[in-house]
Design a protein around this nucleic acid. Structure first.
Lengths: 163, 163
DNA sequence: TTGCATGCAAACGGTTTGCAAAACC
DNA sequence: GGTTTTGCAAACCGTTTGCATGCAA
């Protein structure tokens, strides 16, 4: 994700995903906490998820990154493990339009995305007012809200944006 | 969509999709405004979209409804035309989780959905505060927001909800 | 009568599954 | 050594496409 200009009222930290420092042993204990065996492939997938600058990655992205290290890796391994990480809440799944599912490590605060439909740029934001309203709507309709999807689409008014 | 109880502060009209009275000639002019030829299959698909009580329908749903009238209808016809309706803004596409795309006729106000992940019930809501925040977020990040996806997931606290 | 629309079947792309071999603990 | 996990290939499912035929205008 490339941040070219800061919107009013937002600090850089709110926009740029810090390159998280997850050590090998961090990753291993992640796996153990999921009751999964520690394998090189799984460690490599976790590293791929944690590797910047693109932090919202598809199974294909992961496959390509891991392939560099383990050329024999199969798609099945990637899909199976990504699904596990999501099940255990280690990653969250981003389902944007007709594009393939994207995964991101849940190492930060809850946030949402704005997607430029011209250049594909993804910017993140947080909004307390919206979160409060979500709680209210759930209560009003007598639902226990477990999670939500919230994605904005449009055009980034960036001179470098393609076409 | 089945409404079993009304949440506080909401009127019935906000929740139940009125069975819209779209006459044959309404549907025909819809097609002409899209610069598409009037065919029995297309009219039948529009009727299927307009038929309650389930107003969020998949291509398969439409196919089954239309098949009753035109047994030779093909999936391609359904998919092709549904895509056209979405392109022309006659319908909106609902992409919920891993399930197939659902279509609904845009005959009402802009709204969002709460989905019960246990029983599949879909309830609709509107929220001005959230809409205002969406505008604000777009402005703050210098995006021209064209549309958004917003879906809440959880459990309906309904005694009839399966399991 | 001419170009758009249809139905069929095959292709497509992302994802999942079955299974034997390999790796983990 | 027993149980996971892997890689491969095939299956899967929703959706799209190519093409010859059919139909609306």
């Amino acid at each position: 994700m490339e941040i070219t200009e800061l919107p009013k009222g937002y600090t850089k930290d709110e926009l740029i995903q810090p390159q998280t420092k997850l050590s090998e042993s961090n990753l291993k204990s992640m796996l153990r906490s999921m009751n999964l065996k520690v394998t090189n492939q799984r460690l490599s997938i976790l590293k791929a998820l944690n590797k910047g600058p693109k932090t919202h990655v598809t199974a294909k992205d992961v496959f390509e990154r891991v392939s560099a290290e383990y050329p024999n890796i199969g798609f099945a391994t990637v899909y199976r493990f990504l699904k596990e990480t999501s099940r255990f809440g280690i990653t969250s799944e981003l389902r944007i339009g007709y594009a393939p599912t994207r995964y991101e490590l849940k190492v930060r605060e809850h946030h949402h995305h704005i997607v430029c439909t011209k250049c594909g740029k993804i910017v993140e934001f947080q909004n307390e007012i919206i979160e409060d309203q979500i709680k209210k709507v759930g209560k009003d309709h007598n639902f226990s809200i477990e999670h939500h999807i919230f994605e904005l689409y449009g055009f980034c008014n960036n001179p470098n944006c393609c076409k």
